[in-house]
Amino acid sequence: MKKTITVLAACGAVLATTVPAHAAPVKDPVRALKSKLVAGHGVRFAETTVVTGDGKLTLQKRKGSFQFDAKGIAASDISATSKGRADERTISVGTYSYTKGGIYKEKFEGGATWVKSRGLPGGASGFYGQVINPAEPKTLAALVKKGRLKGRTLTGKITFKDLAKVSRWFDASVPLRMHDDTKVSYTLTLSSAGLVSRVKSSYAATGVFDANGFEGKTMTIDSRFTGWGAKTRIKAPAPSDVATAPN
């Protein structure tokens, strides 16, 4: 009898030490995000955008970083590459954005290489970029509310209209969207700390580009986020290098 009890106890110890780490409940993602919103810190990302329908085409790739303040995103620095368009870089600080390359590939008066404007934190590449920004507390809260969390994966759907209500990023990145009732399907992958490590979203391409070439096609954007809370410093370009956006 004593031997049986000893064996059972040993088996219990083995089971206790082999329970997979992912079995532990994930921390509240909104609370986890807010804990990282410290001035002078931020997060890095890299993403790929593809369009599918009659095949699969990679439209663009982007990488960059967001700098935080206590409320969310205070600044961003994003570089984009795509086939058939000049490489683009956009720095946003506060309500102003500075873009170099892309549609502004030529130099301006005085040799300025950056163009200053309001809005468009993602530059022109924002029209092809990730529409869901997990670094915005209100956005993340809406996704959690509308979605279903299973393990470390949050899935759901949200319309352009509802996304625009909570996300300054979306509203500024895609200001000329065609259909507010377009539904975005999203999948967020969380770390054990509750932080978003990946965002995959997809929607009907005609939601933004209502043209024959996009009819029946789907935009899918896959973004990876790393370095949550890393020290980040983003500065606007020197005034001597900046021109005002042409009308």
Rank of each mutant, 00 (worst) to 15 (best):
G40C: 04
G147F: 06
L188D: 01
V166F: 07
A164Q: 07
K3D: 03
L188S: 04
K183D: 00
R224N: 11
F108G: 03
L57H: 15
I91V: 08
T218Q: 12
L176Y: 14
A236M: 07
S82I: 06
V50W: 14
T90N: 08
T220H: 11
V208A: 00
A39R: 06
A204N: 09
K217E: 12
W114R: 09
T113F: 13
R31L: 09
W114P: 15
P121D: 01
K2H: 15
A21N: 13
K83G: 14
Y128C: 00
D162G: 08
V93F: 12
A32V: 13
T159L: 14
L154A: 01
D210M: 09
D241G: 10
T48L: 07
A142H: 10
R89D: 01
V50R: 15
V174A: 03
K27Y: 03
T99Y: 14
L154C: 10
Q130W: 10
L8T: 12
K161H: 11
T182S: 12
D180A: 02
Y104I: 00
V7M: 10
Y104W: 12
V115C: 04
L163H: 01
V196P: 11
S82C: 13
G227S: 10
T52L: 11
K231W: 02
T95I: 13
L190W: 11
K231D: 06
A86S: 07
D222K: 03
L15E: 01
G84M: 08
T81S: 05
G111R: 10
S202K: 09
V50N: 11
T99F: 07
G216I: 03
F214C: 08
G151S: 02
T244D: 03
K138V: 05
T17V: 15
T244Y: 06
A21W: 09
A32Q: 02
T95C: 08
K146R: 15
R224Q: 11
S185Y: 01
C11L: 15
P25G: 07
E106V: 06
W169R: 03
P239L: 02
R62P: 13
G122W: 05
A112K: 14
D222P: 15
G72P: 04
N247C: 08
K71Q: 10
A142I: 10
W228M: 01
A21Q: 12
I132K: 07
P246C: 00
S117E: 05
T159E: 11
P20E: 01
V208F: 12
T81Q: 14
K100E: 02
D210I: 05
L188A: 00
A74Y: 05
M178Q: 13
P175S: 00
G101H: 05
K105T: 05
V242R: 00
A39G: 12
G72Q: 08
P134W: 02
R148K: 06
Q60D: 05
T95H: 15
M219R: 01
T155P: 13
P239I: 02
S125P: 15
Y96C: 05
R152E: 14
G156Q: 07
R198N: 06
A135S: 12
S167N: 05
G194H: 02
Q67L: 08
W228D: 06
A230S: 10
